[in-house]
């Protein structure tokens, strides 16, 4: 009878758990890695969604759904593939939420006889309370950020996506193109136009 061999954790292969550099990963290790990844991107992802959707609750829903989709469908992929996959899922989620909101905004005035329901996210007091900021401590910075945020929200969707993926997440042109599903030339164009629009919108203010 041959002696039993205790494999190191990295060498234990399980179904649906792929190899990375020829080494298998345990399911527990994959869970640890994906949790660490999600923890590292969740705040930027939230800000990206919030800058696109305005409402923190909507942003949180979209981010949580993107997390779930990544874990459910792509946990077995290499960790190097997670960032573009996650932000692609997030981008699609933001797009869907924007589409639903636009449809709702078109239908509600028709349904209520022309009286549009107030969007709570448009109430600056509610936004201030929901984000928990203290304007007294850093009023100037908050105002500068709010101006930038408003300018970013005013960008066309593609320009905003290119700007946020490049500036907030720090993706290079190739990865941004992969996430946006377009060519690198398009990313460069959208990013350049976004910067030009933002600069023009904020020309009287220091950011």
């Amino acid at each position: 009878m041959s002696p039993s061999v205790t494999l190191p954790v990295e060498n234990v292969c399980l179904p649906d758990v792929p190899t990375v550099n020829g080494m298998c990963r345990t399911k527990a290790r994959v869970e640890q890695e994906i949790e660490a990844f999600l923890k590292s991107v969740e705040r930027r992802a939230f800000r990206m969604a919030e800058l696109s959707l305005r409402h923190p609750d909507d942003a949180l829903d979209v981010v949580q759904d993107a997390m779930l989709q990544l874990v459910r469908h792509y946990a077995a992929r290499s960790p190097a593939e997670w960032p573009p996959l996650f932000f692609r899922i997030l981008r699609n989620g933001i797009r869907d939420a924007q589409r639903r909101r636009r449809t709702r905004n078109r239908l509600i005035p028709w349904w209520t006889g022309g009286v549009s329901q107030e969007d709570p996210a448009d109430d600056p007091m509610e936004v201030a309370v929901s984000t928990g900021q203290t304007p007294d401590e850093s009023l100037a910075q908050d105002q500068a950020m709010e101006r930038l945020a408003e300018a970013v929200r005013g960008l066309p969707d593609r320009q905003r996506e290119a700007f946020l993926l490049r500036s907030l997440e720090g993706f290079d042109v190739a990865t941004t193109a992969h996430v946006m599903g377009c060519s690198q030339g398009s990313v460069k164009t959208h990013y350049f136009r976004a910067l030009s629009h933002l600069k023009a919108a904020l020309k009287d203010h220091k950011i």
Partner: peptide, 25 residues
Amino acid sequence: LDPALQTRLAHARRAALDQGVQTSG
């Protein structure tokens, strides 16, 4: 990002991991 939102994000992450792990494999 204020602590309350960070906590909510952490809960969202945990929920996503719990649900995702149950349905993956």
